[in-house]
């Protein structure tokens, strides 16, 4: 169980958080303009890489804020934590 440094609350146990999957997938502004394939790309396609991954996390049993996290899925090392809307760091 890892320790996550919530950008609003500080270090807390992982059990207080829930993972919301891949980060930086923006909901299309004009969904009706998209083809089935393009919409499916947004709706279903997610990366699941072994290595450095950008993820959304929610401090569900804390401040309830969403934020982004860069985690290496092979060893759970957390490289960065940053607020929603902030630029992703270069890892």
């Amino acid at each position: 169980m890892f320790v996550i440094n919530c950008p609003y609350c500080g270090e807390r146990d992982q059990s207080e958080f829930s993972c919301g999957g891949e980060a930086h997938i923006v909901r299309p502004k004009q969904p009706t303009e998209l083809s089935d394939d393009e919409w499916a790309e947004y709706l279903f396609m997610r990366k699941n890489i072994k290595g450095v991954q950008f993820e959304r996390w929610n401090h569900a049993h804390g401040c309830r804020k969403w934020f982004n996290m860069v985690r290496d899925t092979s060893n759970d090392k957390i490289h960065a934590v940053y607020k929603m809307g902030e630029k992703p760091p270069v890892i």
């Binding site: 969904p31 009706t32 089935d36 919409w39 709706l43």
Partner: peptide, 13 residues
């Protein structure tokens, strides 16, 4: 309505 959550999916094949 132009959009709401799930709208586009109602027109998937």
């Amino acid at each position: 309505k132009y959009d709401f959550i799930g709208k586009r999916s109602l027109y998937r094949s």
